[in-house]
Every structure is written in C-alpha cells, then in structure tokens.
Amino acid sequence: MWKALKNIKNPSQTWTAVLLSVCVYAWVLPVFFLGFLQIIKVAFSEPYIQVPPYKDILTHFSWEAVEFKIYLANLYDLFNEKLYVYAFWRSIKIAGLSTFIALLVAYPMAIGLVMMPKRWQPSLLLLILLPFWTSFLLRVYAWIGLLNTDGIINMALMKIGLISQPLEMLHTDFAVVLGMVYCYLPFMLLPLYSTLQKFDWSLIEASADLGCRPWASFRQVMLPNTLSGIFTGCFFVFIPALGEIIIPILLGGSKSVLFGRVIWEEFFFNRDWTMASMLSIALLLVLMVPIYRAQKKGDL
C-alpha cells in the first residue's frame, strides 16, 4: 500500500521525516542511551565510598594533568567470583526451565482456544489478559498465600489425607519456576494463539487422510508450521525471566540467588555501583543474541 507513496520524491517529505526522527532521538538518546554509556564507564571505574560511589575514569587535576585510570578488578570478578558465576548459570537454568514449562502448558491451551467457537474467542482472550493486567506484584503475592506451609494448598492436601505434614513449597526453586510460568504464561500464549489462528487446518485433515495418527500430524505438520510463534513466545518469556527480581525475592527466599537479583542487591545493599554495572553489561551481552535474532525475524 505504501509502495505508491514510496515513489513520491518530495523535499518537504524528507524534512518531515528528519524532523519526526529528531523528536524521537531528542527524547530517547539523552534519557536512555546516555545511561548505557555511563554504565559502561562506571563498570570500569574504581568503587569509592562516597556519593556517587565510584571514582571517575578521567580525573582532571588541571589542564595539563589528566589522569586516566581503568579499573579491571570487576571484569576479573565477573568470571572468577563464585557467586556471580553460580547466579548466572542458575538463572539460565531457571529461566530456561520456566520457558519450557510455559511452552508445554501454553501450546495445548492455544490449540484449545482456537478450537473454541469464533465468537467466544475474544472474551476468552480477555480472561487471559485479566490476570496479565493485574498487578504483577499482587499476582506473586497471591502465590505466597497459596504455597505457604499453612497455605491453602497444604491445608487442602492435609484434609484429604494425601500428606500428613505440610510440604515445604514456598522458598524453593519449585515456587520460583511456578511463579515465572504463572506470570509470563500470557506472553507465551498470545503469540502461539495468533500463529495457530493462521494455521491451515486442512493440512491436518490432509495428513490424516494420508494415514497420519494425530500425534504424528501434530509433530510433522503442526509443529513445523507454528515454529515462528513458538520462538516469539519463548523469547518473550525467557528474556524477562532471566532478569527477574521480584519472583526470586518473594517466592524463592534468601537462597534463591538469580542474576537479576544479584545486580539489584549489589546496587541497593552493597552500594557497589561499579560491580552492578559490570554485571548489567554481562546480562546485556548475553541477551544481545536473542534480541538481535528476534529483530531480524521481525518479531519486534
């Protein structure tokens, strides 16, 4: 549609384009990109007990004397400090597991959703969005009440006599993964639903006619055709899960050391902005790969 307009070469249009972009840059570059440059700078600065808690890389003594000092201890710690390495791999594991479980839960749900009568689907989507739009914090909070040792789930299980002692569910990895799956499920469900909506169901009928059993036609026909939705969903679950802070703090307890939380605690409790910056850069570099791929694919 815009093709026709593409051919119009009008100098006033060029100026409009430039003007509009400048408006956007004028907002985003100073309040956002400047901050990233500063993070890189702070990551290589020496920590210093003052406000702000780091020494500048460049120190001007006078016009002639400028001291340029790069502090590399943080870079060394990033790879050698046990806590950071441990937190990193744990985050990858927990985020990966949560993404996988979210996919396992969301895929059948998305199929079920597409199978519902067309006129119900908007309302059903709304029901998915309702928990998604309710406060994140309060959704996590609800699970504390459910998972507690004197919580609803333990009470119910004891009443039916399935267990005699309350299960320790809160402050475990189980609770963290559950919380992540619960909070990020809509991110997985919506892309899957939109891909499945476009899926051509006659392909399934055709494969059945050719002798495919349902499971085989799922694996050989439906799965390859919905890969793009799967990737998008996994991307939108994995990325926030990797940097998650609130869920490990509230559901994971003190033992649940995840990467995002380590950054948070370095910053707020240890007041070590330099290490927090270094860890943020590490997290960003790790995320660059999936973000770049998602943008190439056109998800963003």
Partner: peptide, 27 residues
C-alpha cells in the same frame, strides 16, 4: 529508529532502571 524505540521494551528492568538513573546523574 525502530531499534531505539523498541530497546526499552526488551531489556531487563534492572538494567533499564540503572541506565535511567545513570543518565539522570550525568544530565
């Protein structure tokens, strides 16, 4: 343009929060 418009959405909140704070301090 599209990259800088979308970047704030896909980056983790911790990193975003710190970037904003740093930007404010520099400004």
């Amino acid at each position: 343009l599209s990259f800088i418009s979308i970047a704030p959405m896909v980056l983790p909140e911790v990193v975003l929060g710190m970037a904003f704070l740093m930007a404010y301090l520099v400004l």
